[in-house]
Write a protein that binds this DNA or RNA. Sequence first.
DNA 1: ATGTTGATCTTCT
DNA 2: GAAGATCAACATC
Length: 217
Amino acid sequence: MDQGEHRRLLGLAAPEFCPHLLGARVSSFIDGQLVVIELTEVEAYAGAADPGSHAYRGKTARNAALFGPPGTAYVYFTYGMHHCANVVCGEDGTASAVLLRAGKIITGEATVRARRGNNTGPAHLLLSGPARLAQGLGLSLEHNGKQYMHGTARGPGPSLGLESLATSAPEHSTGPRTGVSGPGGTEAYPYRYWLPGEPSVSRYRRAAPRVRPSPGV
DNA sequence: ATGTTGATCTTCT
DNA sequence: GAAGATCAACATC
């Protein structure tokens, strides 16, 4: 695909962009290690009008990268321990973005296992879930706001890459978003997209508010 | 196989 | 002060 077509697809709003991202390749060159993955599951976050989006309550220091140009990485920290990664798409300033939920490893399995705590489990589980995927790619807040270059990530400095977007959307399935509570988590937002039959696709869990243990006496 | 819980802390209300 | 675009360990069936 040429650069112009790549840019055109990135300019689509998240729900339209998602199918083109399935089967596409994301790569990171971080700490001298190249990791290339193929996406199998993504979720759309449609900007300020989407109650499930971090952009719903307007621009803040945390979500500023969401409002950047298409091709920007939005990486955030949550639950006190996890990072999750998005690709910003749509028109500049619309805060449309796609959460990278799962993928399979093309290059760099040893690096991914090392980053995932020398995990020795089956390879298809290594990137199964947004926090696992971000960890496998080595992403953290340092990379928030960086651009995904068109092509494979490469040195000398840290870089991110995005390539092989599908020109026509592959066969895929859709459903409600995982982990999103409130109106944004209902069937009205079938913004989760995945490749059927891929073992790396994360198991669906409906968002359930957690009951905190009462504070100790 | 499915359900529950602890970990751990930033962000916004 | 409460919830969060989660994960892994543990309990129970």
